[in-house]
Structure formats: structure tokens, C-alpha cells
Simulated scan of single mutants.
Amino acid sequence: MIRKASIMKVYREHHEEYRRRHDELWPEMEQMLKEHGMLSYSIFLDTDTDTLFAYLEIEDEELWAKSADTETCRKWWDYMQDIMETNPDHSPVSQELKEVFHLEK
């Protein structure tokens, strides 16, 4: 299992809309994530800074990287681009974080 973390930004006035859209995650998006090796995915919001912290557990980096090229992922990016910081292709502006500590039971 591979742990990944990143940060993104959601526009302050859209915190609730961001939550609503994820509460109503498309079934095809969930299926695509699972097909590309997602084991667990959590997103947390710092309401003071509008920063989203995403934590993801995946099976394989190469398989996961292919998820960005799917039609479902591209449609999701288009759907989300009006409520968060995005790149010209509508992918979220995201900064991958480097793991510096991990502890398990």
C-alpha cells in the first residue's frame, strides 16, 4: 500500500458546495477510482485558509497515474473547476506532500 497526500484550494464561498458535490459523488467516479487502485481516500478542509488536505492510499503508482487520463476524471475536473483553484486543463492546482513520518500500531 502506498500513502499519498496533497493540498489544494477551494474558494471560500464554496466550502459547502465542495462538500455537497463529494457527498453526491458520481457512482462512475467512485468506480473509476477503485479500478485505478484506490484503497482509501479522505479530504479535509481547513476553513481558515481554504486549504484542502487530501490523503490517499493506493495499490500502484503507475495504475493510479492513469486515472487522470480517464473520461470520468476529466468530466469531474470540469465539474469542479468553478469552485476551486484549477489549472488550464481544469485539473486541481495540487501540491504533493512528502511523507516525513508514519507510525502504525
Rank of each mutant, 00 (worst) to 15 (best):
H22L: 12
D23Y: 05
D23S: 09
E24A: 15
W26Y: 08
P27V: 14
E28Y: 04
E28W: 10
M29C: 10
E30D: 11
Q31G: 02
Q31L: 11
Q31H: 08
M32D: 05
M32C: 14
E35F: 00
H36N: 13
H36V: 06
G37Q: 05
M38E: 04
L39K: 15
L39F: 04
Y41N: 04
Y41K: 05
Y41E: 06
Y41L: 13
Y41C: 03
I43P: 01
I43C: 02
F44N: 12
D46M: 05
D46G: 10
T47H: 09
T47E: 15
D50H: 08
D50I: 02
T51Q: 14
T51D: 02
A54C: 06
A54H: 07
E57G: 04
E57Q: 15
E57H: 09
E57F: 05
I58C: 06
I58A: 01
E59H: 02
E59F: 00
D60M: 08
E62W: 01
L63G: 01
A65V: 00
K66P: 00
K66D: 13
K66I: 02
A68Q: 09
D69H: 07
T70E: 07
T70H: 05
E71P: 02
R74L: 10
R74I: 13
K75P: 00
W76A: 11
W77G: 09
Y79K: 12
Q81V: 08
M84S: 11
E85D: 13
T86W: 04
N87A: 12
P88L: 14
P88Y: 08
P88H: 08
P88C: 12
S91K: 12
